[in-house]
């Protein structure tokens, strides 16, 4: 789904990722994500995938460089402008990050409560519909501690799509799931993309997931500390530099 003429929905220019005063984790990151694309950020553990995600969702300020969301500069935006940008996207965190003091349904209702003028009955209706989309309509009244890890991830997706965002971010969606739950989650992502036309950015290193859902991917290279390659994963597997092929073939054991 690479579209050369289309305006990118996310554009990262010369981004430098760093914590505090420590030396940068990644530098000179450049890539673009196009509308309705499923874009994967991959790399070895500790390479800065999740840190890059935290920058993209505005939780961390970049040391240098720019991030454009919907053509607007996220780093330069004031709080109101930043919130306006953030409202157009949803995030699913690694462990789900459901608010533990609320039921699953209330979790999905909170974004609606904050940003829409719907009344309680309408909010419930919308939230139940979102839960039905992820197959959790029966679990609305449960607390996050009462549901399984896979369900928590689904509930987190329902919360992320509560406000019909244009971009969805996922932090390691397959982590800690059994193979079937992981496959079902991948199918869910594809369904949501096809049905709602949402752009998705996924941080993962699970090869099965990468090959089954990703349109394009960026490989973060721990050795050079910058982008190793950008492109469709299947093409990268045959054409990229040897160490990236090594990663994509599970250290040479997958063909």
């Amino acid at each position: 789904m690479t579209t050369g003429t289309q305006m990118p929905i996310i554009e990262v220019r010369d981004l430098v990722l760093a914590y505090g005063t420590e030396p940068p984790i990644m530098r000179d990151l450049n890539f673009s994500v196009f509308p309705k694309e499923i874009f994967v950020i991959m790399g070895r553990s500790g390479c800065g995938k999740s840190t890059l995600l935290r920058h993209l969702i505005g939780l961390q300020q970049a040391r240098a460089g720019e991030i454009f969301l919907f053509g607007k500069n996220l780093q330069a935006a004031d709080e109101a402008g930043r919130n306006a940008l953030l409202r157009r996207m949803g995030v699913m965190y690694q462990g789900g990050a459901l608010w533990s003091s609320m039921t699953v349904l209330e979790n999905v209702m909170l974004p609606l409560e904050e940003y829409t003028s719907l009344n309680l009955r309408e909010r419930k209706e919308v939230a139940n519909y979102k839960l039905a989309l992820v197959g959790l309509e029966h679990a609305g009244n449960k607390y996050p501690s009462e549901i399984s890890g896979g369900m928590a991830k689904r509930a987190s997706i329902a919360r992320a799509i509560a406000l019909d965002p244009e971009i969805l971010f996922f932090d390691e969606p397959g982590a800690g799931l059994d193979p079937i739950a992981s496959k079902e989650l991948d199918d869910l992502l594809l369904n949501i993309r096809d049905a709602l036309g949402t752009t998705m950015v996924i941080v993962t290193h699970e090869l099965d997931s990468i090959f089954s859902v990703a349109d394009r991917a960026v490989f973060l290279d721990t050795r050079t500390r910058t982008v190793g390659a950008v492109g469709a994963p299947k093409e990268l597997r045959t054409s990229a530099a040897p160490h990236i092929r090594y990663f994509l073939t599970r250290a040479g054991t997958l063909k």
Partner: peptide, 17 residues
Amino acid sequence: GSMQASEEISALRVLGI
């Protein structure tokens, strides 16, 4: 603190709360 650990606070921040 445990909400911080499970990223619940990040989830609030991203929601603009």
